[in-house]
């Protein structure tokens, strides 16, 4: 983690789009009128969903909507690392760099991103890509993992990620999930343990006499 500051280049204004505004109102309706600031995190999240990042005008607009001091909204936006304070590309790649992913090749993914996109948080010339390293995404079984547009791409190699980026750049949609066709987090190459059929058909069952079981019939 590092010091989180607002981006130096900011848009001049921010406004929620009509459907985002509707979602924002839905969140705000959950709280009493005097406690509207409870909705600050969902609203910041909506702003990020709309723009890809949280800009200073967005923070100000949200604080105003919720009737809270703008510094309080800034505190929240800078506290949570999932709020991106800098512009990102159309496709923002979040590469998990925590230990299990690192052991399974996240370093190569990061090297690829660095080579193809540039340093973290730098947007490519065409505005398509940016990337960042994030903390554990919680899918360690399928390491290494990258999150793109809220979806996990798992079991990645550098080639897989490169392929994903090529397809994204070409405007195609990409399918989330394991790059190796693994079913969710099932073992790779089929089941290796607990394969004995008798485990499941009841044939291994041995009649047991429970010591405190009352005599039958009574």
């Amino acid at each position: 983690m590092s010091v989180r500051r607002l981006a130096s280049n900011q848009p001049s204004s921010f406004a929620f789009s009509a459907d985002m505004l509707e979602k924002a109102r839905w969140w705000m309706a959950k709280y009493p009128e005097t406690r509207l600031q409870s909705a600050v995190i969902p609203l910041l999240w909506l702003a990020q969903e709309q723009e890809g990042w949280v800009s200073e005008p967005a923070i100000r607009a949200i604080a105003e909507m919720l009737g809270m001091p703008v510094i309080r909204a800034l505190e929240v936006a800078t506290f949570y690392t999932m709020f991106r304070l800098h512009p990102v590309g159309k496709h923002h790649l979040q590469i998990c760099g925590t230990t299990p992913c690192m052991l399974r090749g996240a370093e190569e993914l990061k090297a690829l991103c660095k080579g193809r996109i540039g340093p973290a948080f730098q947007v490519t010339q065409d505005g398509l890509f940016s990337w960042e390293e994030v903390e554990c995404l919680g899918a360690c079984v399928n390491a290494p993992v990258a999150a793109i547009h809220d979806y996990y791409h798992e079991d990645l190699t550098a080639q897989d990620l490169e392929g994903l980026m090529d397809r994204l750049a070409a405007g195609e949609t990409v399918q989330p999930g394991s790059a190796r066709g693994r079913q969710r987090s099932a073992p790779e190459g089929g089941t290796a343990v607990l394969t004995d059929k008798s485990l499941y058909d009841g044939s291994l069952a041995v009649p047991v006499a429970l010591p405190n079981r009352p005599a039958s019939g009574s």
Partner: peptide, 14 residues
């Protein structure tokens, strides 16, 4: 005048 705040967190709190 709620205008002072603590941004960031942990070691980076300012």
């Amino acid at each position: 005048a709620p205008e002072i705040g603590a941004t960031g967190r942990g070691e980076d709190m300012e």
